[in-house]
Amino acid sequence: MPTSRLTALIGTTLRQQRELRGLTQHALARLAGTDRSTVTRIEQGERAPTVAMLEKLLAALGLQLTVGVEPLDSEVDARIDELAVRSVAERIDAVGLDRMLDRLAELPHVLTGTTAALLQGAPVPVGDLEIAVAWRDAERFADWLERHYAQRWNPAWEEFGYLPTDPRDPGEHRWQVVGGVLRAGMCEELPEAIEVRHGDRSYRVVPLALVEATEPATAELLRRWRARLARTD
């Protein structure tokens, strides 16, 4: 990802997470031990923060920095084009979504991220199954993970394992379980959800507009899809 896009993505993510917590730029700056102008410039994409500064800002928001990689833009666009000619039912089947959801039926959750986008018709690549889980259900979630032989993602080793699986313990909320990889957004309350139907099955998903407003990575994929649609009209 070019630096200019990465800088803009960092800024957008920081602003969204700050606003979700009801903090002003001044309040965040004070918590992170910096000044308001620094927060403003980072959020506006005018300044690329150092890793140390970004970690301080995220820590002030109760978050931690993780590092990942993604395919080159041309490969993402090719994948979007490939998915666009397939039905939603075919895409659901290809990622094994229903089998995973059958296992999750006992756990209160809603679908979010690229999973929610897929179910609302967007031809975006889906990797991990993405869900939101309320902290009040953390113990039930921990029991579910144990029963499904979960291994937690360890960013230091860049593989699954060697970390406590309980979501209340420190670590990225990403696990490999029987049937695939699960990523959870832990929250105080489950986000607003709508019901969509495909075939004889209903799915509770975060509305696409809310996904775009709160999840920058998925929002970028949706932007690329719409840009490609506009070029073909």
Rank of each mutant, 00 (worst) to 15 (best):
M1H: 03
P2C: 00
L9I: 05
L9D: 11
I10N: 01
G11K: 07
R15N: 06
Q16V: 14
R18G: 03
R18M: 06
H26C: 10
G33Y: 09
T34G: 08
D35Q: 12
V39P: 01
T40F: 04
R41T: 01
Q44S: 05
A48T: 04
V51T: 09
M53I: 02
K56Y: 08
L57K: 01
A59M: 07
A60P: 02
L65W: 04
L65S: 03
T66H: 11
V67G: 03
G68L: 15
E70S: 11
P71A: 09
D73T: 13
D73C: 04
S74A: 14
A78R: 13
R86N: 13
D93A: 15
V95N: 03
G96R: 08
L97G: 01
L97D: 04
D98P: 10
L104M: 07
L104W: 07
E106G: 02
L111S: 07
L111T: 01
Q120R: 05
Q120E: 12
L129Q: 00
L129D: 00
E130D: 07
W135Q: 03
R136K: 11
D143T: 10
W144D: 00
R152V: 00
W153V: 00
N154G: 04
P155W: 01
W157H: 11
E158D: 05
E159P: 01
E159I: 04
G161L: 07
L163P: 01
L163D: 01
R168M: 08
R168H: 04
V178N: 10
V178M: 09
G179D: 06
G179S: 12
L182Q: 06
G185S: 13
G185D: 15
L190H: 14
P191V: 08
E192V: 12
A193G: 03
V196W: 09
D200W: 08
Y203K: 12
V205G: 15
V206F: 12
L208R: 13
A209G: 09
A209I: 14
A209D: 14
L210Y: 09
E212I: 14
P216W: 10
P216Q: 13
P216C: 05
A217F: 06
A217W: 09
A217K: 11
E220L: 06
L221C: 04
A227T: 10
R228A: 13
R228L: 13
L229V: 05
T232H: 08
T232A: 14
